[in-house]
Design a protein around this nucleic acid. Sequence first.
RNA 1: UCCGGGCUGGGGUAAUGGUAUCCUUUGGGCUUGUGGUGCCCAAGACGCGGGUUCGAUUCCCGCGCCUGGACCCA
Length: 434
Amino acid sequence: MYDRIKGFRDFYPEEMQSRRQVMDTVESVARRHGFREIGTPALESAALYADKSGEEILDELYSFEDKGGRSVALTPELTPTVARMAVARQQELSKPIKWMSTRPFWRYEQVQQGRFREFYQTNIDIFGSADPTADAEILAVAANALTELGLSGEDFDFRVSHRDILGGLLESFEGNIDTEAAIRAVDKRAKIDADEYADLLTDAGLSTAQIDDFDSLLDSGEDDLDDLIEFAGTDRVEAAVENLREVLAATDDLGVREYCTLSLTTARGLDYYTGVVFECFDSTGEVSRSVFGGGRYDDLIEGFGGQPTPAVGFAPGYATLSLLCQRAGVWPEEELSTDYYVLQVGDTRDVASRIARELRAEGHIVESDVAGRSFGAQLDYADSINAETVVIVGEQDLENDEVTLKEMDSGDQIAVPVDSFPGEYERPTYEDFA
RNA sequence: UCCGGGCUGGGGUAAUGGUAUCCUUUGGGCUUGUGGUGCCCAAGACGCGGGUUCGAUUCCCGCGCCUGGACCCA
């Protein structure tokens, strides 16, 4: 027996069927919004990550030297790869670029609930549009995907904020302030106690009075946005507030405004966000961590050597998304389903195979005996795979030019002519002949 | 990297300083013709290493793994 590698998971058919259904739902919503699927490598040059974030980042990655002496890493996220791809063809790609991709990523970090070393995400991004409609479309795809999964506004909440509001407010304070440190402090505000929070802001360069001002501003609701402009008195904050309003107005037109709540304390840990940011939370709070997040990152493509290209996107991870779905009771049944089991008794493989083939041609899931088992054992097996209908092809039946249709739920069964089965029926059941 | 809880067949459990209970599961059978009720047979476990001991699954230590959290989340 070999052990599974820590932080990696196996998915057996029952669970995989549910995961597949959830992933297909998310992808299908994105596809209907015109996002095109891309395929990307599992391995990238380590420099793709180290150049932006420093060599230390490699400690958190699966990084190694390949046999050609290249320093490489298993991709921990898609954004640098997508940026690389966009930069490589920035001239020929028509804008906006709308791409999506579902695949695993790897990070060498501590495993805990909803966090593994191998995790699956669907990345959904728009490049080449700075228009608020693009931000809103991202929010709409996210909301539509969740509602299509069966979740409602009672289940989840998008906490929406804008990086330039926080940044702009901090900028308007007197003194030498470390904006990024202050934003990181804000991001943690809900998780730490007031003293720790104040200490972090003090470290970032704010005075006690400024902390109080800042804190009260953070509690601003949607009606108080003008107060923020007034307080800061800068073009940056005014522009940010205006942009945020436009985005929210656009989500209204897209029918997803109800899922968005203004929350200035939502900052996201990632430093590369530049505009609207949002995080999806479980409304009941039972899933304590953020389910997923996204936002605008206008400087990143340029940072990877491309022309300045605005970008906005989000990336739901399936570990946390499944926690939310399970909490809300909309996680698909983890039970196999089978449309038909074609049971053979005696030497009837020719007829059984023909019937199975014709049912499969209609797109059904059909199983038949591949183990030479007895009648009882086959029925037992059909039950274990939740076969809806069993087609009994037995020597006795064939003597009468018949097969027997058995509805497993009720146990009812009926003889039908073998020559016309399945015949013209697309999905023949016991009911059709009873 | 740190802190807490936990490791007995595939899953769930019982007891125990002298190799292990029960349920479930899996495979086969109970006239190769009726599953989701029964019966029979079979398979299958003390995470690893060290220590104490005549003897350790049991007590002690270390490690590993699982699980929850902290840090982190580029």
